[in-house]
Design a protein around this nucleic acid. Sequence first.
DNA 1: GTCTATATGTGGATAGAC
DNA 2: GTCTATCCACATATAGAC
Lengths: 188, 188
Amino acid sequence: MTVDTKTALLNSAESAARRNGFDGFSYADLAAEVGIRKASIHYHFPSKADLSVALIARYQEIFRQVCAKIDTEKTAGGARLAALIERYADALNGGQSLCLCVAFSVSRDGLSDEAIAHMAAFRRMMLVWLETVFAKGQADETISDVTDPKREAAATLALLEGAQLSARAGRDVALFNAATAVLQNRIK
Amino acid sequence: MTVDTKTALLNSAESAARRNGFDGFSYADLAAEVGIRKASIHYHFPSKADLSVALIARYQEIFRQVCAKIDTEKTAGGARLAALIERYADALNGGQSLCLCVAFSVSRDGLSDEAIAHMAAFRRMMLVWLETVFAKGQADETISDVTDPKREAAATLALLEGAQLSARAGRDVALFNAATAVLQNRIK
DNA sequence: GTCTATATGTGGATAGAC
DNA sequence: GTCTATCCACATATAGAC
């Protein structure tokens, strides 16, 4: 199935941003991949800041659906947590890609205030969801040693992002698994 | 006390890199801060890749000393872990800076293979040290719920780096403390 | 919507005088 | 060691034809 130019640009940009960071690709790169001239991109996204906002907004919406899907497919807290960890592992693409939120976290410019606000909103969304997951896992005893669900949520998001970072740095998914092994073992 | 030009350049570059990433500063920036012309920088560091290697090599050496100092000042495993966490918190500079290793992990180019190898060596060094810390904390019972020291080490390094990332993204040190609260509470 | 052509800025890097 | 001057590549962005 073919996608419209705007979607093709978003797909290409997201892939590039997750591989090299938001400052790590240019309109020329996108143009080459999508098959139009770089000037044409400005018709869809007048500035690169506009593109950054569109990217992170779409990403947040996708993850909202991902979490919702996990909620319908899994009932146990532990199973839901395991599903999210797997999602973060898959996002690595063999050690080449990062979660868009992690990739954006290090870019210096190009990111408008609006994009930064979206990033914060994304993290808040994930924290809320993770908190309910840990609360459920504590109640149904599918996650061991749960103290405070809110704190567990904050620790888990940081752990997943940090594990991605070291895996990407070493171009080795095994590093992600090593960093998340303790967490995985808490899942019954 | 005044420092020589080369050291001043390294200091300025490290600060800039930890704030904005390795691709987030230019020779022009360094020149302005140090007070020489940018062409002069090439005398000390012919290419920016040379600068990246010098930066990460110096950083690893500093941390080798940091860990050694902690080992002499603290004996309990828990106290040693607490000291490292505090070091990572301080490195945030109120939410503006990252550990150089984290900052480098997201840069795309400019980093030579040599610099990447140094980064991997830095992480390995920290993992080895953390493993001994957890082993000690398990033995002297100053860290609770220690399962496998090697896995705990991998999880802790990822957690610290991830916690820095979210704190930097939100420009708020409280986010670092929130993410590390569970770990902190395991220290007796 | 996409094109060609171009403006404008900034990056790292070099040559050669002092 | 540091300077001035300059080069070249590449970035985002705009104007205007089709």
